[in-house]
């Protein structure tokens, strides 16, 4: 593995990772409608994107869904993780363990189809949910994102110093107070990470949303997919470039904050 082979393999790997993204960004500034033939520099696709009501509307739907389901998933995932790490035995412990880890390996097509069938049966027998749209997408995303939050919260709850909780209990705090004053502040960074992961997972999901959404509610991936299916289109390149820009800025800010935090820690 020494010598020329390893650097060459690594260089190839990074070209593989970045070349498609770089070409995507470059061709978003292309004047020509043909995505892969250079026709001069232009920002016209960004203008068209900003006038595209369908894409802007779908982006708003996606943000609402992602915000709501990340928040709900963080609450449910944290409760699940707390129950599994702090309550040693209760009826249904095995069932809860299974239900909280299974969504991680469940193919999206199965999760989507089975949830849709549940919603349809519930509508017939209970009358709720009447039709499908934002609420059903939020429920579906909450369910699969909660599993990811639970994994993160569980590892943090396991590694934290439980004597802190014991000390608070010995000093007379009730379980609710111990949770809100000791446990929650300690695991808060992990929960922020979990919320962010759930938010991105929800923003990224196409398959589950396609199954459980109704005619009125299309998320951004659903709109992108229906456009992209017909072939490449330059305004999608522009959209991708904007998203990549957002991610880069977020990473730079996060890196700067972390560095500052570390310096203050010293």
């Amino acid at each position: 593995m020494r010598g020329w082979f390893l650097p060459l393999a690594v260089a190839f790997g990074f070209i593989f990772l970045y070349a498609p993204i770089i070409s995507l960004v470059v061709f978003s500034f292309n004047e020509s409608r043909l995505v892969t033939v250079w026709g001069g520099f232009s920002t016209r696709w960004y203008g068209e994107l900003l006038r595209d009501r369908q894409i802007l509307g779908a982006a708003w739907v996606s943000l609402q869904v992602a915000f709501a389901s990340a928040t709900l998933a963080t609450i449910i995932g944290t409760l699940g993780a707390f129950v599994l790490t702090r309550f040693s035995s209760f009826t249904g412990r095995l069932l809860l363990t299974g239900m909280i880890t299974a969504p991680l390996v469940m193919p999206e097509v199965i999760t989507g189809l089975s949830l849709l069938l549940l919603f349809v049966s519930m509508e017939m027998t209970l009358g709720w949910p009447a039709g499908r749209g934002l609420p059903t997408i939020i429920i579906a995303h909450t369910t699969f994102c909660a599993a990811f939050v639970a994994v993160i919260a569980q590892s943090r709850l396991r590694s934290m110093d439980e004597s802190l909780e014991e000390a608070a209990r010995d000093l007379g705090a009730g379980p609710v107070r111990v949770f809100f004053d000791i446990t929650l502040p300690v695991i808060a960074p992990a929960l922020v990470a979990g919320w962010l992961l759930a938010f991105t997972l929800s923003l990224d999901d196409l398959v589950i949303a396609s199954f459980v959404s109704g005619p009125g509610a299309s998320t951004l991936p659903m709109v992108i997919f229906s456009k992209v299916r017909l072939g490449v289109s330059p305004d999608i390149n522009a959209l991708a470039t904007i998203i990549i820009g957002f991610v880069l800025v977020a990473v730079v800010i996060a890196g700067w904050l972390m560095r500052r935090g570390m310096r203050q820690g010293e």
């Binding site: 498609p20 061709f27 999608i236 991708a240 998203i243």
Partner: peptide, 12 residues
């Protein structure tokens, strides 16, 4: 970045 857009990048 978006999973869908990464697949789309390979289409181009």
């Amino acid at each position: 970045t978006s999973f869908l857009l990464r697949v789309y990048a390979w289409m181009g």
